[in-house]
């Protein structure tokens, strides 16, 4: 695979990720509307939003550090893209990259890091409250999420490459069907809710209390980048979950698995109130972490 090939693959799959992500978010809005007895926006509403945002002028707060404020959304967007492309390369092209699961774990925290830096650079008080919550939320869900990923690594013969994890599941049955794998899936799913920052863990944005928190000063295409980041993560994180616990993404069955995870996410989003940050910390570090460490005991079962 030469360089040009990789560049083309990267660009092609990036476009796919953005389009698919925005489409999925559109469906999400539609389902949410139906659950609340509304008609809801059309499915392509998110495309319209992003295209319109790209034409808008960009407002920069007077006190802001301009460079960091502008670079942060780019970095968030690109890191989400890279993590998506890494998963796709090992899923569809059979690329063996040892240790890419660890790379993914680190790459997937970069969007949160960028949200923090951008919010902090904006010099807005509401944004700094949001930023503080964002990073505390990262700390909260990272502990169980990392442990769940380590569980997957242990379960798949100490291999850290996504390709091998899929391959071993093909040989010995998917992780989800074992006790440890089931508990691990459950915990990793909870971690993903935090990573996506949807209700009940949309603490960092919390429109009704801190007016969008980390995003309060963002406008125009910079806001569009964050929207697209969120959209890509809505594809990437469930697929990562599927790779780790459900044996990868294979054909229509794979799509069905994705839809199940997606519907679960949407249902949780629309039936729960927002929690406080200390409740989130207690939830992730207490109950969730205890379960994931218990599940290590069932590793050999």
């Amino acid at each position: 695979m030469n360089l040009l090939n990789i560049i083309l693959l990267f660009i092609g799959w990036s476009v796919f990720l953005v389009v698919a992500g925005l489409f999925v978010l559109g469906i999400e809005r539609k389902i949410a509307a139906r659950l609340q007895w509304r008609v809801g926006p059309p499915i392509w509403q998110n495309f319209t939003d992003v295209i319109k945002l790209s034409g808008k002028e960009i407002l920069i707060p007077e006190k802001a550090n301009k460079l960091v404020f502008i670079i942060a959304p780019f970095a968030a967007f690109l890191s989400a893209l890279v993590s998506g492309v890494i998963i796709i390369l090992s899923l569809l092209y059979g690329k063996i990259m040892p240790g890419d699961l660890i790379l993914l774990i680190y790459l997937l925290t970069v969007p949160s890091l960028c949200l923090f830096l951008g919010a902090s650079a904006s010099g807005n008080i509401l944004a700094s409250v949001g930023a503080s919550r964002e990073i505390k939320l990262v700390l909260a869900y990272e502990l169980p999420f990392i442990a769940a990923m380590i569980l997957v690594i242990f379960k798949s013969g100490f291999s850290t490459s996504l390709y091998n994890i899929i391959k071993i599941q093909k040989e010995t049955g998917i992780n989800f069907l074992s006790v440890a794998g089931f508990l691990g899936f459950f915990i990793a799913f909870l971690g993903i809710i935090g990573k996506l920052g949807i209700v009940p863990f949309d603490i960092a944005e919390a429109e009704t209390e801190i007016a969008g928190g980390v995003l309060v000063e963002y406008s125009g295409m910079l806001l569009g980048f964050y929207k697209m980041t969120r959209a890509i993560l809505f594809i990437v994180l469930p697929v990562l979950l599927m790779v780790c616990f459900l044996g990868g993404f294979n054909g229509w069955v794979g799509l069905l698995k994705y839809i199940v995870i997606f519907v679960l996410l949407v249902l949780i989003k629309n039936t729960n109130p927002r929690v406080r940050i200390d409740q989130a910390l207690r939830f992730y570090w207490g109950f969730t972490t205890i379960i994931i460490f218990i599940s290590f005991l069932f590793l050999r079962v």
Partner: peptide
């Protein structure tokens, strides 16, 4: 990704930025 980001960034800087007080 970094190179693509740089290209995107250079496109962006052609746009107008307006300085406003924080909200």
């Amino acid at each position: 990704a970094l190179i693509i980001g740089l290209i995107l960034y250079l496109f962006m800087t052609g746009k107008t930025f307006r300085k406003v007080p924080s909200f």
